[in-house]
Write a protein that binds this DNA or RNA. Structure first.
Lengths: 109, 109
DNA sequence: TATTATTTTTTCGACAAAAGCGAAATTAAT
DNA sequence: ATTAATTTCGCTTTTGTCGAAAAAATAATA
């Protein structure tokens, strides 16, 4: 990919961040992916992708205020940028076009 | 990916093969991708992906009979396997679920 | 009718980018 | 200090990408 294209996992993470809206951070994103996609993934993989998406300008991030819970670093919260939203819509549209062009005979059952 | 997951480009190629139905071979697939996805790609990239999809069991292939045209090797024609069809449907369904879970506030305009 | 060109298509070899993981580092509350 | 929740680092495997070489089929020609 030439650095601007959305990878398969990148797209899923972006979509999940949008789902989580104002509470999208590492662990929650990981759990959401495992539940909705029925697939296991480690927290470091999630962070790795999050970082890449931010570098590409598809995500913004900010630190949350410290929570009243036991311990831990402040959460890094992510939100989808306008550009991220557009990238998402673009791949959705391309796939819709491709699906609609498949002749009935191609897929049996 | 653990060898069973569909990469971003792999998914597109698979979808295009389904579109082309009984005439899916290298060059045509390349042209179709460039047209439908508005993105340039080389023929060797296409062949590489085709090969990998066949290895994963998502595509079957067979040689066409020689055509009455100028020259050239026989075309290697591809078709989507049942397993390929299922992989395609699975990613489509997951994305549909994710899209439907995005709160309106998340995406402005 | 052999032999050589030309054309269309696939295969090879190499490298960059994305996916993925385990472990280390940070930081905030007990 | 200790403990718990998170993120950051370094590294390996899988995907994505390309240019160039190899094949194989027809056309030209001697």
């Amino acid at each position: 990919m030439k650095g601007t294209q959305l990878g398969e996992l990148e797209e899923i993470v972006l979509l999940v961040v949008a789902n989580l809206y104002d509470n999208a951070y590492g662990l929650l994103i990981k759990l959401e992916i495992e539940e909705k996609c029925n697939r296991s993934i480690t927290i470091s993989t999630v962070h790795n992708v999050l970082q890449r998406l931010a570098d590409k300008g598809f995500l913004d991030s900010r630190y949350s205020d410290p929570t009243p819970e036991r311990g831990g670093k402040r959460k890094l919260l992510f939100t989808v940028t306008k550009s991220g939203q557009q990238a998402l819509e673009k791949s959705r549209d391309i796939r819709a076009t491709l699906w609609s062009g498949i002749p009935k005979v191609a897929f049996d059952k």
